[in-house]
Design a protein around this nucleic acid. Sequence first.
RNA 1: GGGCCGUUAGCUCAGCGGUAGAGCAGCGGACUUUUAAUCCGUUGGCCGCGGGUUCAAUCCCCGCACGGCCCA
Length: 493
Amino acid sequence: MEDNDLLKVRLEKIAALKAAGVDLYPNDAKPQNTTAEILEGFGGKDGESLARLTEKFSLAGRLMAIRSFGKAAFVKLQDRKGQMQCYIAKNILSEQDFSIFKKLDIGDIIYVSGKLFRTKTNELTLEAQTLRLMAKSIHPLPEKWHGLTDIETRYRQRHLDLISNPAVREIFYRRSLIIKLMRQFMDNHDFLEVETPMMQPRAGGAVARPFKTHHNALDQDLYLRIAPELYLKRLVTGGLERVYEINRNFRNEGISTFHNPEFTMMEFYLSYATYEDLMSLTEELFVFIAQNVFNGLSFAYQGSEIDLTPPWRRLSVNDALLQIAGMEPADVSDPAKTIAFARRVGCDIKETDPHGKILMAIFDEVVEKKLIQPTFVTQYPVAVSPLSRRSNTDPELVDRFELYISGREIANAFSELNDPADQRERFMQQLKEREAGDDEAHEMDEDYVRTLEYGMPPTAGEGIGIDRLIMLFTDSASIRDVILFPLLRTRQE
RNA sequence: GGGCCGUUAGCUCAGCGGUAGAGCAGCGGACUUUUAAUCCGUUGGCCGCGGGUUCAAUCCCCGCACGGCCCA
C-alpha cells in the first residue's frame, strides 16, 4: 500500500538488526522511572550533587528526536508523563548497544538506563549506559515542529495525534480527572453507582431517534438506549433511593461540533428531593470540579470568561421569552401570536404542534445562545416534559430546569413524575404526537407505568452531558476534541 | 439536507493554463554537550477520484468521495 522509499529504508534497517541478532519486539525490560518523576525529583539538583548519586535510573518510551554528532547524540524520549533528554555516547555504551542506536529511527520505542547529569547548558539528562530497542516503528512520525494538524488524520489516527500533540494528551488526562471527581462527589453524597441496559426493547427516557439492532437468538429487535432514565427510576422504586450512572447514550441524529451519536452522560436520582435541591447540588458539583481543576471558579471558554460562583441565575422559560427573546405577554399566552412570532424568528414549526413546544422552539432559536454565564432555566411546559412532575402552582408547567453555560445545554433535571395515572396520560399524549408524525415522541411503556404503580418515592433526577462539560473545562470548540474516537464516515477503499 | 471552504512529498505548507517547490523527516558525508543542533550533498509526487473544455489541466468547468465551518 505504502511502498515508498521511506518504508524501504526502514525495512532494510530491520533486516540489518535481525541479522545482528537483535530482537525487534522484546518484552523483558521494565522502566523503574518516568520522565516527569525524574525531572521533578532531581530538577533542583546541581551537577555536583547528581555526580555523587550512586542511583541508576531507567526510562522507556518513544524516541522523539535525535541530535547526533557521530560518536555521541542527544535524544528526546517521551513516555506517558512527558519528555526527557538522554545522552548517547560511543565511549559509554557497549559497542553492540551503540551499533543498535545507529540503526534506530525517530518513532522507535526504546529503553535506556544510566545515571543523571547536567549538560553544558544545564539540562538534566539521563546518560545511557545501556540502551535497548523495545519496538521498531516502520512509519515516519508527523513533523516535529508543527506536529499533526490535519483534523481528519488526527481523528482517524488518534495514536499519531496523541504522540505528536501534548495538548491533546492533556485534554484526555483532564477528562479522566473530571470524571473521577464526579464519581468522588457522588460517592461522598452517598449515591450508589449502577449500570443499566444499553440495549433496550423500547428506547425511552428522552426525546430522540434511536439506533436499532437485533438479537438473533431471541429474534427480537432492540434499541441502543437514548437515556438510562426509566431503568434508574425502577431502581429508585426498588429502594436504592440514590443512584447514578456514568455511561454512553446513543442518539441517531446529526453530527456537529456539539453532537456525537454516542456521548457520555451522568444521570442521577435523589429521593426525597426536588428539582430545586438539584440546583444547589449541581452548583456544588461544578464548584468542586472547578476548584480541583482550576483552583478557582472562573475560567475562559472560547473567548468568554465563565464565572461559576454560586448562586447561579435562575430564570423561568416565561421570563426568558419576555426578557431575552423580547416577546410581549400576549405573544407568549396567545397561541396564534406565538406561532406568528416563531415564524418571524425563523423556527421550523407546525401549526399543530402543542403551544408549549412552539414556545420552546422560540427559546432554542433565540434565547439559548445568549445564556453565557451559568443559568438555570426553569418551569418548562408540560408538553415537552413527559416524565416531569407538574408544578403545584400551575398544572401546565413542570418542576424542571435546564442548565445553560456558554449558550449550550449542559444539564437537564426535574422532579420526577411518580403519579402512575398522570404518567399513563402523558404517554397517551406522546402517542398522539407520534401518530401525528413526530417519530421522536415518547413510546408508551406499560412496564414502566406498572413499576410506578408500586409507588416510587418523591425523587428528583438529573442528566449532565459529560462531553460538553469536558469541552467547557478544556476550552474545546468541538465535541470531537474531547472524544478519543469521534464517529466519522468510513472511508471507501 | 443546504451554503461556503479545503484535499499538492511521510508531515507542515507554497505554487500555477505550458509535465511540480520549500521546510522538517529520510538517505550519504563531517561532527563527543545539542535544544526545531549545525554544515555539505541528495532521494522522494496518479497535485483526492472520475468526466469535460483546451494544442496543453495540479490549475478552468461538472460530478463524486472525504473532511472542516456555518445554517436547518
